[in-house]
Computed example of a mutant assay.
Amino acid sequence: MFVAIALLFLFIGLAAGVVGSIAGLGGGIFFVPALLFFANLYMPGSMQPHTAAATSLIVIAVTALSSSISYLKQKKVDLQSALLFFIGSAPGAIVGVYLNTLLETNQFTLLFGLFQLCMFVVLMVKDKIKPRQLHWDVKRHFIDSEGNEYEYGYSRWMAILVAFFVGITSSLFGVGGGVLMVPAMMILFRFPPHIAAATSMLVILFSAVVGSITNISHGYINWMNAAMLGPGAWAGGQLGAFVANKMKGKTIVLLLRVLILGVAVQMIGETIFR
Rank of each mutant, 00 (worst) to 15 (best):
F2M: 05
V3E: 13
V3N: 08
A4I: 13
L8P: 01
F11G: 03
F11V: 15
I22G: 09
A23R: 06
A23H: 03
L25S: 02
I29L: 12
V32Q: 07
V32L: 07
P33I: 07
P33L: 03
L35P: 15
N40G: 11
M43H: 15
M43N: 13
P44H: 12
G45T: 12
M47Q: 02
P49G: 10
T51Q: 14
A52T: 03
A54C: 04
I58M: 07
A61N: 04
V62A: 15
A64H: 07
A64C: 08
S66C: 13
K73L: 11
Q74Y: 07
D78K: 12
L83E: 05
L84Y: 15
L84N: 11
P91L: 02
G92L: 00
G92Q: 02
A93Y: 01
I94N: 02
G96I: 00
L99K: 04
E104G: 15
L111N: 09
V121W: 12
K126A: 14
D127V: 09
D127A: 07
R132D: 12
Q133L: 02
Q133R: 12
H135I: 05
W136A: 04
K139N: 14
G147L: 01
Y150T: 04
Y152P: 06
G153W: 08
W157Q: 06
M158E: 10
F164N: 00
F165C: 09
G167T: 00
S170Q: 02
L172M: 03
L172V: 14
F173N: 06
G174Y: 01
G174K: 10
V175T: 03
V175S: 05
V179H: 12
V179Q: 11
L180T: 07
P183D: 10
M185G: 06
L188D: 01
F189C: 12
P193T: 11
H194D: 08
A196E: 07
A198E: 05
T199Q: 10
M201Q: 14
V209M: 13
V210N: 00
T214W: 00
S217R: 09
G219R: 02
G219T: 03
I221H: 03
I221R: 09
N222M: 09
W223V: 14
M224E: 09
M224N: 07
N225M: 14
P231H: 08
A233T: 05
G237L: 04
A241Y: 00
N245W: 02
K248E: 15
R257C: 15
L259R: 06
V263N: 02
V265E: 04
M267G: 09
G269V: 05
E270M: 13
T271M: 11
I272P: 07
I272M: 11
